[in-house]
Design a protein around this nucleic acid. Structure first.
Lengths: 207, 207
DNA sequence: GTAAAAAATTTGGTGTACCAAATAAATAAA
DNA sequence: TTTATTTATTTGGTACACCAAATTTTTTAC
């Protein structure tokens, strides 16, 4: 069965994409291994394989980055992931914080047009349930201007667009606070007593 | 990733189920290997693994059959397969003869309740687009009384319930003749000049 | 510049699921 | 029954995607 041939590759590309989006600093083997929760030896050989397929490139300083081809593949996988998430939430009535694992499986279904049909069925959503934009069928992504809440200004109001973390504990925590994408928050206070930055938020109505 | 751990197992069980349903004769290693399009050596070792897990049993005459546990697992996989087929046809507007390959992938998605939600979303369909019954969530299958068209009586009318063959060429052929499950056919003539049995059919309206 | 720490790489493994080809055992045909 | 044929099984492989532990290389600190 060659149906499932590219699961791993796609995971590597997707992870590389989101690492390069999130972090300013360069991604090395260790960082990628940590993000994927895999052994550095494993990651090393896979990166070589991806490099030989022209999907990633390794610079002289050992920094790993996507090629244009790799970036496109990553975005097409992300497209599948996000459209399936919309399906799970809008049609199967999952909560937005429950769908990540399932979408992780569904994104690997291989078909030329399944995902385009799904997109049409879902009425061409622009964002997934976490507020992240959905790439179009050619792998292009509209960038919306978002800032981390921690760099917001005290007293100002912001609309939650998307979430930097997608781990289950965090999503469940937000669920408990009734915070979800699209919601408006007012920054009450900002205080960074360590590297991280905590803040109080006030939940508004729906003005 | 252990997400995909049981793909092969499920394929073996499903194939064993449909072989035992179709054929009266006992299923041996060669027959199973042919049905799965795999090498007999491969099948042999997998059958041993399945036997050690109490999913199949091998009798003294080398006949391979499902245990009750294996049968249930097979039916739950078939349930997934058929519900996904309904989704693809009813919601994504695929033709009923195009969905087999995709459902083959989708059936392996692992989740306790995804498929139950899908079933609810689809409004608890009793049959898949090929006319085959959909097992319930406990793996039970309602048997409907069907006969092969070749053992029908000349001049009588029959409703197409399901298809014995699911290969693409055959499905495409039926598609060309506009024959699909639910349709009523009248047997014009029966003549078996070889082992197989050919017949002329007359396509009725929708009375 | 050298020692310590960190990162990269090599080496030798694992489990799953597959294969071809050789051999053994069972069945059928003469 | 003895041979021929078909099945079953064993043996020795492959590819993929992973790992731990040892080693080498690079970076950083002193």
């Amino acid at each position: 069965m060659s149906h499932f041939a590219h699961h791993s590759e796609e995971n590597y590309l997707k992870t590389l994409f989101s690492l390069s989006a999130r972090d300013i600093k360069k991604v090395n083997n260790i960082a990628l291994a940590q993000a994927l929760k895999l052994n550095p030896a494993t990651v090393l050989e896979m990166v070589r394989k991806l490099a030989s397929k022209n999907l990633v490139e390794v610079k002289k300083d050992k920094t790993i980055s996507l090629t244009e081809k790799g970036r496109k593949r990553a975005l097409l996988t992300i497209r599948k992931h996000r459209l399936w998430e919309v399906f799970l939430v809008d049609k199967l009535r999952y909560k937005w914080n429950e769908v990540h694992e399932l979408a992780e499986q569904l994104e690997h279904i291989e078909s030329k047009d399944l995902i385009d049909r799904l997109e049409a069925f879902l009425d061409y959503p622009a964002f997934d349930p976490h507020g992240d934009p959905i790439p179009d069928k050619s792998g292009k992504l509209k960038i919306s201007s978002t800032i981390p809440l921690s760099s917001g200004e005290k007293g100002k109001r912001y609309k939650v667009m998307s979430l930097a973390e997608t781990n289950d504990a965090f999503l469940t925590y937000l669920e408990k606070l009734h915070i979800k994408p699209g919601m408006k928050l007012k920054v009450e206070d900002l205080h960074s007593y360590d590297q991280s930055c905590s803040l109080f938020v006030h939940i508004d109505g729906d003005p």
